[in-house]
Amino acid sequence: MHTQRRRLKDTTMSEHPVHRSAADAVAIGPATSEPFDTLLHQAHAARLGMWVFLASELLLFGGFFALLTAYRFEHADGFREAVHANTKVLGSMNTLVLLTSSTCVAVAVHVFREGRRRLAGALVFTTVALGAVFLTLKMTEYGLHFHEGIFPGGHGEWFLHHDTPGLATFWTIYFVATGLHAMHVTVGMIFLGIVGRSVLNGRLPRAHAHRLELAAVYWHLVDVVWIFLWPLFYLA
């Protein structure tokens, strides 16, 4: 299905993935940016760069995972009580929205490689739309929390009649972590929107499919982070 990737995989790690033959070189086209000899080579570097960046992002959220784990040991009862008070149905719907959006963008990458440009573009923008749905639901949830009197920092009247230790901590980390995640969703939507536009109007040639892949991979990471935030904040 994706022949370019196969070829990339075959070259060993210690050597340049330079073109094997002149025919390949013509098919792949010249490099666009300075330090690389071929586009294929540049695409691999871009992909590796994105993965290294995502590794970094994972550690950013890793800080939250460490905090949540530690606080759960310290305030087991408070955290369980707070989870039960959370908007579980909305949060779970949001998980489903993100899983669907990930599927959409994965399929978009696949069909773009096959040259079905319009379908790919439509799927990318479906993903962006699902991102918007996610953010809307998230905002609704925040609204419901504020309505109940739950504000970050243990402020609000909800805390007047709920005083198990750890409740304030749970909600503050909840707001900060989901807020940071929502920022990542927004960045991912912008990124996908820009690439999606050039997919639709044909300015992104098939040989440059890696740009779409980069945006997609970023979007998947946002999804993966949410896959873990969901049980920690809503389920148990």
Partner: peptide, 28 residues
């Protein structure tokens, strides 16, 4: 593995992903 295509990526990409996972595990 499937959506992000890590299965088909080169060793260097797998290394990046693997070391991030390892580091987060150590941290937590």
């Amino acid at each position: 593995l499937v959506f992000m295509e890590l299965l088909h990526e080169k060793t260097s990409v797998k290394l990046a992903a693997g070391s991030a996972l390892l580091t987060v595990t150590i941290f937590v």
